[in-house]
C-alpha cells in the first residue's frame, strides 16, 4: 500500500498534534463501534483529467457524527457522492457495513442523501413530498401515512403537511427535506452542506435540531460543511480536507459530551476547537500539508514580498 503518500487519517497518526494551539484536543481515535462505511484508498480522477481526490482512507463508525470540512473544490462532495454510490472511485474501493454496495438498502443498512437544496417537488404538498421514498418503494398508504406524520412531527412541521413548498420559508423547506430523509428510517445520513443557503440563526436552530435527532435516534451522519462553527458544534470528529489535489489533511476529534446545546457555542472549549480548525484551514488553502506552526508565516510572506 502507498502509506508514504497518503494523507494522515483516521488511525494512529504520527504527526504532532496541532502545536499552534494550546487546547488539549487533537487525539486520533479508532472508532470503537462497528464500521458503517470504509473508504479504502479510494481516489477519484474525473474523465476530464481533474484529480478531485488523492487516495482517501476513512472509516465511519456506527453512531458517529463526522464532518468533512474544507475549502470549496477540495473534493468534499466527491467523497460524499462516492459514499452514496452516486459515483465510482477510479482507484481503491469502499465497503458498506463490511460488504459490497448490493446490501445497501436492506433493513438496518439504509443510506439517505440530503442535498444542499431542499429539492422538493413544487407541484406536490409537503406530506406528498415527504412520502415520496415510501411511494417509490410502493409502501401502501395505510402504512406510509402514519410514518409521514411522525417524520413531519419530528422536524416540527406537523401542521404543514398540506402546505405547498413555495408557502414555506427556506428553513422550513429544508426541514421538509430532512423529514423526507427520516421517513425512510435511515441508518446512515449523508448531508452535503444542507444548511449552507440559510441565514445563520436559522442554520443554528436546524443544527441543534439535527444534533438532537442524531442523539435520540442513534443515527450515523456524514456531514459536509465549510463552516467551522457548524463543524465544531455538530461533530464527534472533523475531517479537515485540502484542495489541489483533494486530500485529507488532518482529523480533529471534538471530545465534548452530548447532548450539546447553545451554551456549548459560547464555551471556552468551542472557541479553542474553532481556532484550531481555523488554523488548519489556513494551512489547507495554502496547499502545504504538514508543519502547521509555519502555516501563518508562509501564507503571509508572498503578500509581504509583493508589496515591496
Amino acid at each position: 500500500m502507498m502509506s508514504a503518500t497518503t494523507a494522515p487519517v483516521a488511525l494512529a497518526t504520527t504527526q504532532p498534534a496541532a502545536a499552534a494551539d494550546t487546547q488539549p484536543t487533537v487525539l486520533a481515535t479508532t472508532p470503537s463501534a462497528a464500521p458503517v462505511v470504509e473508504v479504502l484508498s479510494a481516489e477519484k480522477v474525473f474523465p476530464n483529467g481533474t484529480r478531485a481526490l488523492e487516495p482517501i482512507d476513512l472509516t465511519v463508525g456506527q453512531g458517529e457524527f463526522i464532518t468533512l470540512l474544507g475549502p470549496s473544490g477540495c473534493g468534499k462532495s466527491t467523497l460524499l457522492k462516492m459514499v452514496a454510490h452516486l459515483i465510482e472511485p477510479s482507484e481503491g474501493r469502499l465497503r458498506w457495513w463490511r460488504g459490497g454496495h448490493e446490501s445497501v438498502g436492506q433493513p438496518g443498512r439504509k443510506l439517505v442523501f440530503v442535498f444542499q437544496d431542499a429539492t422538493l417537488m413544487p407541484w406536490a404538498n409537503v406530506a406528498t413530498n415527504v412520502r415520496l421514498p415510501l411511494d417509490l418503494a410502493r409502501v401502501p398508504r395505510v402504512q406510509s401515512d402514519p410514518r409521514v406524520d411522525q417524520a413531519l412531527g419530528t422536524v416540527g412541521l406537523g401542521q404543514f403537511g398540506r402546505h405547498f413548498p413555495r408557502q414555506l420559508s427556506g428553513g422550513m423547506q429544508m426541514r421538509a427535506s430532512i423529514a423526507r430523509a427520516l421517513v425512510d428510517q435511515p441508518d446512515l445520513l449523508l448531508m452535503d452542506e444542507p444548511f449552507g443557503a440559510l441565514d445563520e440563526i436559522t442554520r443554528n436552530r436546524l443544527d441543534a435540531d439535527l444534533l438532537r435527532l442524531w442523539w435520540e435516534r442513534k443515527l450515523t451522519i456524514l456531514f459536509v460543511t465549510h463552516s467551522i462553527y457548524e463543524a465544531v458544534f455538530l461533530s464527534t470528529r472533523v475531517i479537515v480536507m485540502a484542495a489541489r489535489p483533494g486530500r485529507i489533511l488532518r482529523e480533529v476529534v471534538i471530545d465534548e459530551p452530548h447532548p450539546r446545546d447553545d451554551s456549548f457555542r459560547v464555551s471556552q472549549a468551542f472557541a479553542g476547537y474553532a481556532r484550531q480548525l481555523q488554523q488548519l484551514l489556513i494551512e489547507a488553502s495554502d496547499g502545504r500539508p504538514g508543519d502547521d506552526s509555519n502555516a501563518t508565516h508562509e501564507s503571509a510572506s508572498p503578500m509581504v514580498n509583493r508589496t515591496h
Binding site: A84, L86, G105, V112, F113, F115, D117, T119, M121, W123, A124, L132, P133, D135, L136, A137
Partner: peptide
C-alpha cells in the same frame, strides 16, 4: 436534484416518467 433523488430511491423508468417528468 430530484432526478438524483428518484434514482437513489431506485425508482423505475415508469415511476420517473409519471411522478417526475409528466408533472
Amino acid at each position: 436534484g430530484l432526478l438524483n433523488l428518484f434514482r437513489m430511491n431506485k425508482a423505475s423508468r415508469w415511476q420517473e416518467l409519471i411522478r417526475l417528468r409528466v408533472p
